[in-house]
């Protein structure tokens, strides 16, 4: 579904990603972790072309992301993305947040879009909030709306960029629950997160990054039981001590 081959990126002389290679198959849940500044957010943003990269190749569902001829908007409409700071559109009601791209990008009718939107809000337990505005919801609620908004486009896979790191601790679980459910239904997911409990529960594989390189790319059992690199061991030790 997603295949990366030797992806490299630099800002001026600063190397952000170096030769990143990995595959994500249909139905897999990949957790990407690593210390801050290791390039994990950049990597995931390369997948839907939000960050350009200078060399290497990313193929999503048979389409090359780096090819200048690729219609990126069309590609992005098939890949859902959830952001660290939710990024709901503050001037629209919750239901309009879910409908706008369905109508303007996919060309669905107002009724179809609203029906789909309400169904998804039901699913994340927020149907009652449909007419409110993002600023009136808690962080956890906003992030659940953001997930519903991405799902409304019927994506073939989902990208999560630190979806819980801007949340107060008591709200983390409501978001992780939604994500876990999604994973169990077979959604293909790539998640940048430090939530190791979530990784243990649902990850198919764990990717560990350090200084722009993919250092570990292994099954979760292998990663948690015997991570090979010293950096990964240090990282795990630090996380566990929290």
């Amino acid at each position: 579904m997603i295949s990366m081959n030797k992806v490299s990126k630099h800002y001026g002389s600063f190397q952000v990603l170096t030769d990143c290679t990995t595959q994500v198959h249909k139905g897999e849940v990949i957790v990407v972790c690593g210390p801050s500044g290791s390039g994990k957010s950049t990597l995931i943003k390369c997948v839907n072309g939000l960050e350009p990269f200078q060399s290497g190749e990313i193929i999503v569902n048979g389409v090359s992301v780096g090819d200048p001829k690729t219609n990126l908007s069309k590609l992005r409409s098939t890949v859902g993305m959830v952001f660290q700071n939710f990024e709901l559109f503050p001037h629209m009601s919750i239901i309009d947040n879910l409908c706008i791209a369905q109508i303007k990008v996919l060309g669905r009718s107002q009724e179809q879009a609203r029906e789909k939107g309400h169904k998804l809000l039901d699913r994340v337990g927020l149907r009652a909030q449909a007419e409110k505005y993002p600023g009136q919801l808690s962080g956890g609620q906003q992030q659940r709306v953001a997930i519903a908004r991405a799902l409304a486009m019927d994506p073939i896979c989902m990208l999560f960029d630190e979806p819980t790191s801007a949340l107060d601790p008591e709200m983390v679980n409501e978001v992780l629950d939604v994500m876990t459910e999604l994973a169990q239904e077979g959604m293909t997911m790539m998640c940048v997160t430090h939530e190791m409990g979530f990784a243990r529960r649902v990850a198919s594989r764990v990717i560990f990054m350090d200084q722009g390189r993919i250092v570990e790319d292994d099954s979760k059992e292998a990663f948690f039981e015997h991570a090979r690199s010293e950096r990964a061991q240090q990282f795990l030790a630090k996380i566990l001590h929290h």
Binding site: L50, L72, S73, K74, S77, F83, N85, E87, F89, R149
Partner: peptide, 20 residues
């Protein structure tokens, strides 16, 4: 992030300006 969020949903750049 707002611009990225618009683009990530499949809006073109002009659409992102217009709607987001």
């Amino acid at each position: 992030g707002q611009k990225n969020a618009g683009l990530a949903m499949g809006f073109t750049l002009p659409q992102t300006y217009r709607h987001v």
